[in-house]
Structures are given as C-alpha cells and as structure tokens.
Amino acid sequence: MDLNKELEKLRKVRKEGANKVFTMYLNTDPSDPDQQGGEWKIHLKNGLKNFEQYMQEDGNKEELKNYQQVKQKVEKFVKGNEQNFKKGIVLFATADEEVWFADRVQMPLKTEFYWEQTPVLDQLSKLAEEYPKSGIILVQQNEVKVIDAYLNEVEGTTTYELDLNTEDWREKLGPRNGLGTTGKGSTNLQVDNFRARFEENKHRWYKKIAPELDKRAKDNEWDKIYVVGEPDQAKELKDLLNKPVDELVQKNMLDHEESKVMEEIFV
C-alpha cells in the first residue's frame, strides 16, 4: 500500500446530501492498558450506534439507509479480521462504494468516528508523515543488516557479510559464523587479531558496501535513513553514504529482533 497515493485520492472526495463518508479510526492495540479487556468492542458498538440513533431521531430515511449499508460493511470487515488485529484499524466508506479503504495498521490510533461530507484524514496524514518508507541500516563490524520499513512494519530484510578472504561484501544466507565476535567458535587471539585488522581496514571495507546501500535507498524510495551501530562503526558508514542519513543511533542492535529495532527507531 502506498499511503500517500491513498491520501491523494481521499482528499478529492466530497459527497453531498444523504450520501456521506464514514471515517473510523479504531484503537485495537492489545498492549494498550486501556484495551486489556477488549474495550475496542464497546467503543465500536457505541460509535456505530450513536450515528444510527441520531439519524432515526432526525427522520432522514435516505441517509439512515445509506449509513446502515456502510455499518454492515464495517462490521463485516472488523469481524473478518478480528483474529489478525494489529494496533488499529483505519476505514473510510460510502454507501455507493465509491469510497472503500480499510486496513489494519501497526501504528497507535485514537478511536474516532465521523459521518461527514469528506473523509477526516488528520490521523492518517500524521501516520504517513511519522512512518514513511525508511531504510534502517544496522552495522556490526563485518556485517551490515538492512531493514526496509514502511508504516511501522518490516517489508523485508537483507544481511550483507564481508568475505575476509576476498574482502568483498556478499548477501548472507544462513546463520552467523561468529567472525568478528567473541562467540564460542573464536579464541581470544583470533578475536584480537580480527579487531586489529578491522580497525585498520574499516574505512576501506565500508566504502565498498556504501554504493550498494545508496542504490538500495534509491530503488526502494526511502524517505528516511537510519544508521544503527557502535558509535565509531555507525559514524564511519554514515559518512561514506551519498544519501543523507536522518538519524544515527549509537547502539549495537544487529542481533535484535526487527520489532525491537523498530521500537527503538520509531518512538
């Protein structure tokens, strides 16, 4: 999903008369203290019922009919996705089906409901601004891991490893081999020798991988770039990239789960 394109389409929507646009932002985040008892169900039920009661009292039968059609679609979407909830649901709909946008998102939302001539886009616009297409580059000595992220979700990961014999970077498949770390497979002497070699050559080694990272940034249309690693390594790689880096996170997180890295970046 390209959220900016969806926003562009939604900004052009304007309805007249009884055929209005329904907007819903629903917080379904199970980690939210206010959601521990599934309170989203109560908020959804009350939010949908309030509009219906108002229209019944107002006596606008055509508008009520349109709203009830939308309500059925909303309830069907929520029920069909209940077992796969993320942090929230964003939904826009009209009875004539000219507008239908519904998605589960991994971003915090404030529960809100609207029935108006135009979709209410403030929260969605904020999400697009705060969670753009991003490249998170994690560096740890002779390994570089790249996370492609969009809307607070991982779209893909690639790990590059330096072949110490040829001094060429290659895409890495399979488990780590322990080179450049103090793992069980390395003696203290081997580790010390590697560290000395690394310090002597890191500028030249990182200069070799930098063009590949710049190309990836261009191909994947990253709006933001983050470099994460020990201060000297992260800064060295950052300075060798042609693409501007938005933030330097001086923390070794290459072995962390992607979700933990995302939490560190998008706080």
Rank of each mutant, 00 (worst) to 15 (best):
K73M: 12
E236L: 10
E230N: 15
S31M: 06
G47V: 13
L7Y: 03
N165M: 15
Q35V: 08
L173K: 03
E153P: 06
E263K: 14
S259R: 04
P132E: 01
P119N: 07
L91S: 12
A93M: 02
N66F: 08
G80N: 04
G180L: 00
F113L: 05
K71W: 02
L109G: 10
E130G: 04
I147S: 00
G59T: 02
K87G: 10
E75P: 07
T159P: 04
K45P: 08
V267H: 13
M1H: 14
P132M: 11
L44M: 12
F113G: 06
W115K: 01
Q35W: 09
H256S: 14
K126Y: 15
A149S: 12
F85Q: 09
N66D: 02
F85C: 03
E52C: 02
F77D: 05
Q35A: 13
P231T: 11
A128H: 10
Q72V: 09
Y131F: 13
A93V: 12
N27K: 05
K79W: 11
V228A: 07
L237K: 08
L124P: 08
W100Y: 15
G88L: 09
Y226V: 03
H203I: 14
F22L: 05
G185V: 09
T181D: 04
T159R: 14
R170Y: 12
W115E: 02
A196M: 12
E263R: 07
E82C: 05
L237V: 06
K65M: 08
Q123C: 13
P231W: 03
F77A: 00
V191K: 06
N84T: 01
L241Q: 10
T23D: 06
E63V: 03
I137L: 09
V120F: 09
M107F: 01
Y150N: 12
K251P: 03
T28C: 08
T159C: 08
M1L: 10
A217C: 03
R14W: 12
K110L: 09
K260T: 03
V154C: 06
E200N: 11
E230A: 13
E129A: 08
K218S: 11
E221C: 07
F266V: 00
V74S: 08
L241I: 13
Q68L: 10
E112F: 07
S186V: 00
E167I: 15
E153L: 01
E63S: 09
S259T: 08
E8T: 12
E129G: 12
Q36M: 04
L64D: 00
E129R: 14
A102S: 05
E8P: 06
E6P: 04
L254A: 07
D34P: 04
E116A: 03
Q190M: 10
E236W: 10
